[in-house]
Every structure is written in structure tokens, then in C-alpha cells.
Amino acid sequence: MTERADKTIELRVLRYNPEADEKPHHQSFTVPYTSDMSVLQGLQWIKDTVDGSLTYRWSCRMAICGSCGMMINAEPKLACHTLLRDLAPGPVTVEPLNHFPIERDLVVTVDDFVKKIESVTPWLIPKHPKPVSEGPYNQTPAQLAAYENFSACINCMLCYAACPQYGENPKFIGPAAMAILQRYDGDSRDGGSALRIDAVHGEDGVWGCTAVGACSDVCPKAVDPMHAVNQNKMNTALDYFLRFLKKRDAK
């Protein structure tokens, strides 16, 4: 039995076409919805039936690709993971993610975010070369638990839209990059710590965080970036005092 879409809700969507508009403005749409419809499906209904020019990113519809992050009633959310029925009676404001330049409508420019992820060396650097003949790397459950939470990050950027420090200072490395850094740094197979510490030991690295914690509150995958930052504040602090005792490879 199919539920009939006999209820409606108003979506106030931020529109911006850089080729025609001087500045962004809101446009209202009255969207019929059923109890199983997400905000993303509401946007798709608008695009299919009212205005084909409405622009937004999406892909998987099931909160794993990280494409459809946007501000829904001023909170960073995945549009596919937010149900219209929970926002009734509306109106619902739908805007692009905070703290990022708008490219068009709900699409933001991600270049800065991608650069930050790249800057933390987000891959495993083995401590020693290990040929296949020596067998696989084994990990205990405790070794897996040390980084598993951080490996759930889907790069959706909700935490950057929530972070007041990133809003203040766009040079701040930000939450997801720190969670991803810790995902590799906390892995028992990895030996790249020194490289990563050097990337984040400055004022715009871990020290740009003031432990507000909004990042961890808004994460749709329950990643805890604030914890990653705290771990690396301690790692960086130890490195600050003990660096003279450490042997470093000549570069």
C-alpha cells in the first residue's frame, strides 16, 4: 500500500546563480510529502516538478557518501538523513554549508577542505618494508579500537560547518582532518607520526581548537573529532618537550 502525499511542507531554499544573481536569496517551495521522505527527496521533488535549475550534491541517499551536507534549519545535516516529518509543520530553511564559499544554490566549494585532508598524510606509512612472504599484519581488538571510530569519517564536512573556530579562521586545520590524521596515526601498522605532528603543531593546527565540541555533536557517523584533537594536543605537547631526545631521520 502506498502512502499518499497529502501533507505539504514549505522549504525555504537558498538560491544563488553567480552568473545572474548579485547575492544569494531565499525561494519558497511547497512540497507534498509522505512520512518516509527525506529533505533530499523534497529537493528532488522540486527539481523534477517545479524548477530543474535547483542545484545540490547527492549520491547514495543512505548517509554513507557524504555528498548532501547542508544547513537545515541552521544546523549542519545530511539531507538524506533528515526526515521531513520531523521538521513539520515547517517552514524549513535549507541553505548551503556554513563557512564555505557558495558555488551555486546548495553547492559549496570544497577545495580548502580537500587540501586540509591531504596535508595530514592520510594513508598508512609502514614502519618497515614488509614483503608479502612475511604474511599479513595482525591486529588485536584493542589495536583496532584505537582508530576504528575515526575510520568512520565520510568527509561530509558537517563538522567544518559547525566549527566556530574554522568560521573565525579558515586556516585552522579543522575537525575532520584531525579525525582522519588520528585514524592513521593511531594505527599499529603506521609509522608516520613524526610527519603528521609536524603538519599540525602550529597555531593553525591542533592549537586552533578551543574544545567547543560542536564537531562531535553534528557528526552523522558518531565520529569524535574533538577527541582526536585532544589526543593530538597531548602528542604535540609531548613532542614539544621531548623532541630534543628523539632521533629523527635526516631529511
Binding site: E118, V120, L195, V200, G202, E203
Partner: peptide, 17 residues
């Protein structure tokens, strides 16, 4: 690739205190 290391912050001193 990793960017050039940023200047080391002296924040650890104050943060540990």
C-alpha cells in the same frame, strides 16, 4: 603532499599548565 611544516606553537606550555 604534506604542506611545509607550520611554525611550532608554544601553546603546549600554557596548555599543560
Amino acid at each position: 603532499m604534506p604542506h611545509a611544516p607550520e611554525k611550532r606553537s608554544n601553546a603546549p606550555v600554557f596548555w599543560l599548565l
